[in-house]
């Protein structure tokens, strides 16, 4: 397996040398790489009456965060879905083109997975009244009859993470790292701070100012460590650099959006995971009944759309479940407000 990978790697290296050298000679490159064909060709199963769905997302499908949470949720749906994916479309106009393209193709349900796509959707949705658009994160449907909206009450899971963080912190100082203060990251951070501070911890927050500067993110984590913060959390797909630092320093990390345990199997304590399938099922049920949109849904701790997943490999994981259950119950019955 390893040698096979190495061989393919060398072939790729060789291939790109040839290509960029701009001197023809393409035969070697193509034949070696043919084996990579399997993945992409699994479309075309609509004879079984599967629901055709498409997702347009700003980041990569495997980002261990926002986009991955939606892809996994669609895959977790009870019904037979034929899913097409256009990911990494962070330029809004490209995303708009993709959304429109799917609609023209006759895809039945299109997920526009990014708040920033809303303005484009307001133009596109009325042109395709038979198509259901699912858009988020947003708290309203912009009054469009064929748009469902979804929103995570990220402050709730943030609060639970904050409570856990205050419990595992010895210094009482907790660092929060983000790229830019925007989107549902803000709700998560506010909830986290509320939870941690209610349990006696101090929360320090820093935004690096860049979504893609992983090095800056890592150094922000280092800065927190130097200042005596001994637990870290962060939001967005760019936190991978920061998780690397906490992993190396052997300090606890709290994840959000998707289960981030794989980034640091011994250090990730818990992740707030988005289970969109809870609300997707409701939307699709309405659609089956002829209602194409018009409702906004929230995933939260009460409806099971937000789940705090404790990393079983974290030392002491067993003791945390009780705290989680207690806090979740208190948030659900309203005796704790999370400040979102």
């Amino acid at each position: 397996m390893n040698t096979k990978h190495l061989k393919r790697m060398l072939a790729m290296l060789f291939a790109f040398t040839l290509m960029a050298a701009a001197c023809g000679g393409s035969d070697d490159a193509s034949s070696e790489a043919d084996e990579a064909t399997e993945e992409s060709s699994e479309t075309g199963g609509d004879e079984s009456g599967a629901l055709s769905m498409a997702i347009v997302a700003p980041s990569a499908s495997e980002d261990l965060a926002f986009t991955q949470s939606m892809i996994e949720s669609i895959e977790a749906l009870e019904r037979d879905v034929e899913l097409q994916v256009t990911d990494g479309t962070f330029v809004v106009e490209d995303a708009a083109a993709a959304i429109r393209g799917y609609a023209e193709e006759g895809v039945e349900v299109i997920v526009a997975h990014g708040t920033q796509f809303g303005a484009s959707l307001a133009e596109i949705a009325p042109e395709f009244p038979e198509t259901t658009f699912i858009w988020g994160t947003s708290t309203d449907t912009q009054g469009l009859p064929n748009v469902f909206a979804y929103y995570p009450a990220a402050d709730q899971g943030g609060y639970v993470n904050g409570v856990l963080a205050a419990g595992v912190s010895e210094s009482g100082s907790i660092g929060v790292i983000g790229p830019v203060e925007a989107g549902d990251a803000v709700a998560y951070v506010n909830g986290f701070a509320a939870g941690a501070e209610a349990n006696g911890a101090t929360v320090n927050i820093a935004y690096t100012g860049s979504f893609s500067d992983v090095a800056l993110m890592a150094e922000a984590a280092q800065a927190f460590l130097a200042n005596g913060n001994d637990v870290l959390t962060g939001s967005s797909q760019a936190v991978v650099g920061a998780v690397g630092v906490s992993r190396e320093a052997g300090i606890p990390w709290f994840g959000t959006q998707a289960n981030q345990s794989s980034l640091d199997p011994a250090g990730v304590v818990a992740s707030q995971v988005y289970h969109w399938e809870v609300v997707l099922e409701e939307m699709l049920a309405l659609r089956d009944g002829g209602t194409l949109g018009g409702e906004a849904y929230e995933i939260n701790l009460a409806n099971g759309g937000l789940v705090i997943e404790i990393n079983p490999d974290y030392p002491g994981a067993a003791d945390l479940q009780a705290t989680v259950d207690e806090t979740v119950a208190a948030i659900v019955d309203g005796s704790i407000t999370t400040g979102g």
Partner: peptide, 15 residues
């Protein structure tokens, strides 16, 4: 970054 981590730079002035 250090000043942000310490809260010396207010979050509004982060950018």
């Amino acid at each position: 970054l250090q000043w942000k981590a310490q809260g010396i730079i207010p979050r509004g002035a982060s950018d």
